[in-house]
Amino acid sequence: MAGSIRRHWKRWLIAGVATVAVLCTAGPYIYINYVQDKPPAALSLDDPPGSNSSGSSSGSGEQAGEDVEGAWRVGSGSQAGYRVDEVLFGQNVTAVGRTEKVTGELEIEGNRAVNGSFTVDLASVKSDSDQRDGQFRGRVMNTERYPEATFELTEPVDFGSAPAVGEQVSAKASGELTVHGETNSVSFELDAQRTADGFRVNGSILVTFADYGVDAPNFGGITVEDEGNIEFLLAFDRA
């Protein structure tokens, strides 16, 4: 009798362990692939413009395109944030966090942006996970001590020509990126689009976490890659 009970107990134990293993494997897969929303697409000039970047031009496209010299500031409709690849309980996912709390300015002479910078309020960045946001603001980025990320041009950006309304031009930007109290030189490609009453600029900056004194945020079954991207889509108004 005792031997029979022990055999049944072993079978139940093995079955229980197998069930837990299946749930641990299948649970995240089902959640990520069938329940969780897909991450938003990368920011791009294909996104609908904000209120300051829409409407019809009061002049010809050529005239509006030429009238770009002077001082500009980041306006409504701007966004910035991060995009990083994670492994969540063995499943590959992409984490995206964004904020509209972005400020900045730009000075244009001829077809070149000669001075410019923008600042992101990191404490307001949100993703689809409160747990991830808590880790981001606390242990990862320590936004209480380092509440902002900034980028400042160190070389003029030459767009070659002033685009007409709706047209896009591309250029390379170089500057200094400050995150988590550390500053590094960065270069990246960006796209600019003339709108009826301003223009928009879109780009992505590759960031290696260790270069900014940030440990790759690994916690609670989540493993994060050693690098990610800072994405931005900036809408500019006349200053």
Score class of each variant (00 low, 15 high):
A173E: 06
E225A: 13
N218H: 02
D211W: 00
G75E: 02
L23A: 13
R6F: 15
A164K: 14
L177C: 01
Q131R: 13
E107Y: 04
A26T: 05
V120T: 12
A41D: 11
E107T: 14
V165M: 05
S60T: 15
G166C: 00
Q79P: 01
E155H: 00
Y31M: 10
R132V: 12
E155D: 12
V186E: 09
D37N: 09
V96E: 07
D158T: 01
T178S: 08
G198D: 02
P48I: 03
P28R: 04
R132E: 07
Y31N: 03
E152F: 03
Q79T: 13
A171Y: 06
F236H: 06
E182M: 13
V93G: 03
G110L: 05
P49W: 04
R6M: 12
G90E: 11
C24W: 03
P40K: 10
R83D: 08
T183I: 03
N229Y: 15
G213W: 09
A171K: 04
E225F: 03
E231G: 01
V17K: 08
I230E: 05
G90S: 00
R73A: 10
Y34E: 02
D47L: 11
Q63F: 07
Q91P: 02
R145L: 11
V35P: 03
L153I: 03
I5L: 15
F118L: 07
L43F: 13
A171H: 12
R6I: 15
R137L: 04
Y34K: 11
L23V: 15
D121K: 09
I230R: 07
E155C: 04
Y146L: 05
N184I: 13
V84Y: 01
R6Q: 15
C24N: 05
K126P: 06
L122R: 00
S124D: 06
Y146W: 13
V157R: 02
G160E: 00
A41R: 04
P39T: 07
S4V: 13
E189M: 07
P48H: 04
N33W: 10
E176H: 09
V102C: 14
V120D: 14
A42N: 02
A149H: 02
R11Y: 12
K10N: 15
Q36K: 14
T19W: 01
D121S: 14
V186F: 01
D211K: 07
E62A: 14
P39G: 05
K101V: 11
G198E: 03
L43E: 08
G203N: 08
T150Y: 01
A196D: 11
T150V: 07
V114Q: 05
G90H: 05
A71E: 09
Q131C: 01
Q36F: 08
A95S: 09
G221K: 06
V201C: 00
E167L: 01
T150A: 14
P39Y: 04
I222L: 13
A80Q: 01
E189Y: 02
K126D: 10
P156M: 08
L43I: 14
G138T: 00
G55E: 01
F219G: 10
S117V: 10
G175Q: 08
E227Q: 14
P40V: 09
S129P: 03
Q63W: 06
G65Y: 02
A171N: 05
E107D: 15
L45M: 02
T103N: 15
N52F: 04
Y29F: 14
A235E: 15
Q193E: 15
E86T: 05
E105M: 08
I30C: 07
Q63R: 10
S4K: 13
